[in-house]
Simulated scan of single mutants.
Amino acid sequence: MDNDLPNIGQEIRRLRKWRNLTLEQLAGQSGLSKGYLSKIENGNATLDKRTTMKAIADALRVSLADLVGDHFLTEQSDGEVMASVPDIRLALLSTGLDSAGEAPQRTMLDLSAETQRVAELRQLCRDMEVGRALPGLITDLHFTATADGANKADALRSIVQATHTATLFLKSLGAVDLAWVAADRGHQAAVILDDPLYVAASEFARSQALIGLGAYQRADRLAMHAAELLRPTTEADFEIYGTSVITTAFTAQLRGDDPEEAIREAQAAAARTSGTNAFWMNFSRTNVNQWRMSIALEADDPVKAAEVAKEIRLSDIPAKSRQVAFLIDHARALHALRGHDAEVVKLLRRADKLGPTRTRNNVWAREMVSELLLRARRDAGGADLRTLADRMGLLSSL
């Protein structure tokens, strides 16, 4: 079986040689061991947390996007979904909130309904439809927001939601730089709107884009700012507040601080909500537990992540996109514990069935499959693993 493993290890080796660094020099500058880096470059170990990736990227003097961005996409990636990225880029760069554009092609009523429809489609992992809809939606909303008329406020509210959808959609495809552009545009709309709830929601989108870019300290500041803006009284307030607080728990862990106080605060906020899915964030007790899994994985505690996973039923996660994230994080925990290869493959295949585009483009999923595949070469691997690897474009031939 010939293998072609376009993984992060190969990219690290390429960038290291481009920087004319030895493994020993990269180890010294990243704070990681030479042996561990050698294993990563050779595909014998996986990069299993964001802080390790960031340390390597910083040592190589490249961005996190350069290391793990959309250049790993293969012919197995959904071509039409990926083809939407340039169209979304053009829509964002061709519009603005500082000057009037053309006349919108749709009424505000239609645009509001379309904004909610596209947000739901993203959570259903219907990525092709999301990619098709976002460029025209972003364009028409900007035309409406900058026109003289009674629809400006409604258009600005929809821009906050539409760019939030675009941010998470683009981030899932590895287009993290463009995700920031979308998130920042939503923030501009929220500031003009001058509504604390919408500003807080836009800060969440910006923090997610910054996490994808490795700018953890600023992501933490923006998430804290979002929480400080709100004095929760309504369901929506508590959901945006709780989402912002649990984000600060995650960024605290990324920055090496204790996340527990923020986790407890988020749990308290979740107890005050019934799950109205404000801004399509799905904040709830189950959502907090999903964040706890991610935090435990960043803390190098796969045992705790696996324990938290047992508290979560897939049926309690309403959004298919979040189900995919849970399955991948559960697989990460079991993969780190070793001895659970069959279950890891089962979880990843289930994620691939629910959300194929985002699973195949997920850096953690690709790393796990690459490493499992390399180890499985000794015994030709299992059919499920080889099928999954092929769907991800990690096999040149079978």
Rank of each mutant, 00 (worst) to 15 (best):
G214F: 07
G214Y: 08
A215P: 12
A215R: 11
A219P: 03
R221K: 05
R221M: 09
R221Q: 14
L222I: 08
A223C: 08
A223M: 02
E228W: 01
E228K: 00
L229N: 01
L230M: 07
R231A: 10
R231N: 10
R231P: 07
R231F: 13
T234Q: 06
E235A: 06
E235M: 07
A236F: 03
A236N: 12
A236W: 10
F238K: 04
E239N: 05
I240E: 15
Y241N: 04
G242D: 12
G242V: 08
S244F: 00
V245F: 07
I246E: 05
I246G: 04
T248G: 02
A249W: 00
F250M: 08
T251P: 00
A252M: 01
A252V: 00
Q253D: 02
Q253S: 12
L254F: 02
D257Q: 10
P259C: 00
E261N: 07
R264F: 09
E265S: 01
A266Y: 06
A266Q: 01
Q267K: 07
Q267S: 08
A269R: 03
A271M: 14
R272M: 08
S274L: 15
S274Y: 12
G275F: 11
G275C: 04
T276C: 13
N277A: 10
A278V: 09
W280Y: 14
F283N: 12
S284I: 13
R285Y: 14
N287I: 02
V288Q: 09
N289H: 07
Q290F: 06
Q290R: 10
R292K: 13
R292W: 06
M293I: 11
S294D: 14
A296S: 07
D301L: 05
V303W: 15
K304S: 08
A309Q: 14
K310F: 11
K310P: 01
K310C: 11
R313W: 15
R313P: 10
L314V: 10
L314W: 15
S315H: 13
D316I: 11
I317V: 04
P318D: 14
A319Q: 13
K320E: 15
R322T: 13
A325R: 06
F326S: 02
L327H: 10
I328F: 05
